[in-house]
Design a binder for these strands. Structure first.
Lengths: 127, 127
DNA sequence: ACATTAATGATATCGTATTATCGTTATCAG
DNA sequence: CTGATAACGATAATACGATATCATTAATGT
């Protein structure tokens, strides 16, 4: 095997412990001490997608983010200050009544945005 | 004045008649007969944003889309077949209860996806 | 007619996220 | 030790949306 075949394990561990989906850069930063290169991060993320272990989350105006595939249906909160994305629990009902006649909905996404706990309590302000 | 100062009017007319927000490319295609260039489209869109006449809508994995600013709060349906985006009327309630303690929500977005009326009735299938 | 100005189109350039290339290095088998 | 293999890092290349540049042309005023 190659030099550090445990990078994959490290990435999985970081993703598993995260409060929400992480981007490739987030992961590289989280593992900066190990000296991991961005190419390696993308490689493992790609493998994870093919293997079905990871899912990709796209939010408006940001890079692709990734999280373990074995999570129940949920949505996201994006902090406008620190750009972090947090998983939310639960799902609002009543979405079906928004669907126009003749349309067929098979997915939905709910994205809340505002300031996260840390940014609120540290008083960071939008400018 | 310049050659065709009515491009702006044309763009506004197309946006006003559209079933949802349009991208710069959508607009160029809609006005293809006029020979409008993509630079002109972007120029007028940019002006519209500065003037507050237009708003920008970003959906995951797509280009920026634009629509008139004088519309009531609403959400979107994106067709996975033809990629068109449609305005929806109404807004599901109960989003506040998704906000974790200590977080402050100031915006939300709801995006439904599936197949639009035309793609359903014409039998186009996802592959 | 002539000069001025503003709008335009072609295209070059940019920014950013992502992927591909390739030489290097660690690990392992014989 | 030697050769093969797989993982790696640096970085070149790509994709694509958006912007900047610049010469051209239409409308306007004189």
């Amino acid at each position: 095997m190659g030099r550090h075949s445990d990078y994959r394990r490290l990435i999985w561990r970081v993703l598993g412990a995260a409060a929400g989906p992480l981007s490739a850069e987030d992961l590289r930063d989280a593992l900066a001490e190990t000296g991991i290169g961005i190419a390696t991060v993308y490689r493992h993320l790609k493998d994870g997608l093919s293997d079905g272990d990871l899912v990709c989350v796209e939010l408006p105006g940001g890079p692709k983010r990734f999280e373990p595939a074995d999570q129940p249906h949920h949505h996201y909160f994006e902090c406008v200050e620190c750009q972090a994305v947090f998983d939310l629990v639960g799902c609002p009902g009543g979405l079906d009544r928004l669907v126009p006649p003749g349309f067929e909905m098979d997915r939905h996404e709910v994205i809340l945005s505002g300031r996260c706990h840390d940014c609120v309590s540290s008083g960071r302000e939008a400018n």
